[in-house]
Design a protein around this nucleic acid. Structure first.
Lengths: 355, 355
DNA sequence: GCAAATCATGACAGCGCTGTCAATTATGTT
DNA sequence: AACATAATTGACAGCGCTGTCATGATTTGC
């Protein structure tokens, strides 16, 4: 494999492989009979390298199964190609969807997410942001929990592009991609009022740590207030949202809010679709007439809600797209291109058969 | 802030901050009046450092908002604390559950996943493995798609611990955590046969790229073959599994397999719970008697299946636990502790009301 | 009280790679 | 053919940190 013509480069120090025998760029260069820097240039892009040299280096690299060490490359001045991603949860499919879109977009550009999950814990979020930034990522994508001041300080002082996702209402630290959670809640209120409902209840999970669910509820209340309507009842159950929790929540709610003959029809707004699907299951089990006795409205537009025998009325968010756009925004920022501070992807009211 | 006593260390080169003004360890050391290496030791663990020095260094670090550069640390010989994770999908909640468990366990040890999603594409998986390994992670966790020989070569030659997850049947490259997909399929066959079913059908997504769904189907067929029963019909729809797809699959299946009065009762086995829930929704919409006319069996034991008005018969896999155990196994390997080659977490037949 | 052990600290080198700038060679122009 | 321009290559230094070994300071044992 080694070319016969002995050059100076081939005589320089022979990197004795220690215990870790991974080949280095120096070895590739030696075999190809070029300097390290030329090998480096050949292996990326190949600009400013003669075609013959390029091929010689590539052949050498392949021959010894060379794999670049990106730690070294990044430390030496290359762009990082890692993107820190901090999410509040993975049990809710909302964030796996976002992550999916984000990963797809990043991968197209050869970037990879380093992931942190805060479980809606502000201190954990803070630690994650700090930990992940210490890897000197190209940027950071954050679906904020209730962030601490220290978290915001870390982000603002990080010197890398920050993309906050999901809610466009809070003032962005840098850039934001999402929808107006508050407007979404309001839109639901308007729709339900327009539909003639005047008796509304709310069933949610522990929204004290979930700022977006809280914003939606506030938007809902705002919208109702405009018509001087208030929520007839509210049930908040501890723990993260889930189908079973929604089922329980409705069960509990109906103890205070009787439905059926002799009662005004009731519509329950849920903190999200998972909860609403649970509510639907309760209604099915209890033999309630939906939407005659009990109407249901969710939020997110998950596939499951639309596959129900009665498609769920909900507000569809564009989660995968938010992930993709967040990735695109980050990559654009990294490339020095200008990016809109706020990208509102909007939402869509999905009128199902449950209202 | 700077101590008044001028020491030699303070006179050495003043690192002029370029455009990137992030403080370095050298600056912390200078302010604390110690050498870099002492500052380094003080900032991690604090072993072999006098208490007074330790506090001085920590104070200095805090004063200038020092944040370590882990790229440099890892390159210089520290352990990586990044773990490559390659999954075939994120649209299925199975893998978000696994990722959740994994991330939780890793985070406890200050490690973070770098994520890649292959979409069940072998070549993409190969590229991801290669890309992620170039970050010199402490280890790699893989839920394999149909892996290429090159992928296996990369993994075997990586020199870091590899944990394959989800299926314990294939021979592990290094270590594996999961369950026997084949045995799970077989267990379902035995249960259904024992329950008296003799007319069975299968409804699945595109399982040609999903080795585990394929193994379960094979296990199912193995189990049926023992009683000389064969599948009466099979419907495979293109695309990834989803609730709507399951609904469609059953609709299509019933065109060939009539059910109801005058027909033997039929049980449909689905490639997973998502599909089965879709099937259930179809049955509800079509007014079919479940399980009288049509029985349904899923796989995975997702919460959604259990929250249905009729809880789904399924086989519960321990996904979060698999993630946690995979993380634990990896961390143990990194720490040089011995780890079982194969960890079979088993599965649990969940007898619902749909069979 | 003095050798032997322990503790605290630092000098040095280097992890593997890339940016900058300079040197060399090939190509084009009239 | 002589010069200007471009293409190709390399030397050098250093990114920020940590392992190893050596040194001086301090304590312990009998």
């Amino acid at each position: 494999m080694t070319p016969l013509s002995i050059t100076q480069a081939q005589m320089t120090r022979d990197p004795d492989q220690p215990d870790d025998n991974r080949p280095t760029l120096a070895e590739v260069a030696r075999i190809a009979g070029v300097s390290e820097i030329t090998a480096s240039r050949a292996l990326r892009g190949g600009t400013h390298v003669a075609r013959a040299t390029l091929e010689r280096v590539q052949t050498a690299a392949r021959a010894i199964n060379y794999m670049p060490n990106r730690l070294a490359g990044t430390l030496a001045g290359g762009a990082s190609r890692q993107v820190a991603v901090v999410l509040p949860s993975l049990s809710n499919s909302v964030f796996s969807d976002v992550l999916h879109g984000l990963e797809t977009r990043l991968e197209q550009a050869g970037h990879h997410p380093i992931l942190g999950v805060s479980n809606y814990d502000p201190l954990r979020e803070e630690r994650l942001v700090s930990d992940l930034l210490s890897w000197r990522p190209a940027g950071l994508v954050l679906a904020p929990a209730v962030s601490t001041a220290e978290t915001r300080r870390l982000l603002a002082g990080s010197g890398v592009p920050i993309v906050e996702i999901m809610d466009v209402d809070p003032a962005p630290i840098d850039t934001t991609v999402g929808l107006s959670q508050r407007a979404a809640g309001r839109a639901m209120a308007h729709y339900l009022l327009g539909r003639g409902y005047r008796r509304l209840a709310y069933a949610g999970h522990d929204i004290s740590t979930d700022p977006r669910a809280l914003s939606r509820l506030q938007g809902l209340q705002d919208g109702l207030a405009e018509a001087e309507v208030t929520l007839a009842a509210t049930v908040l159950l501890p723990g993260p949202s889930s189908v079973p929790l929604g089922r329980d929540a409705v069960g509990q709610l109906l103890q205070d809010c009787p439905v059926g003959a002799g009662h005004d029809r009731l519509v329950v707004c849920f903190s999200n679709d998972d909860m609403a699907v649970g509510g639907m299951f309760h209604a099915l089990s209890a033999g309630l007439d939906v939407p005659g006795d009990l109407a249901l409205a969710g939020f997110n537009g998950l596939a499951i809600g639309q596959a129900l025998p009665l498609p769920l009325t909900t507000i569809a968010s564009r989660r995968v797209e938010i992930g993709e756009l967040a990735g695109a925004a980050l990559l654009a920022r990294v490339a020095g291109k200008p990016v809109e501070k706020v990208q509102d992807v909007g939402f869509r009211l999905v009128i199902g058969a449950t209202t």
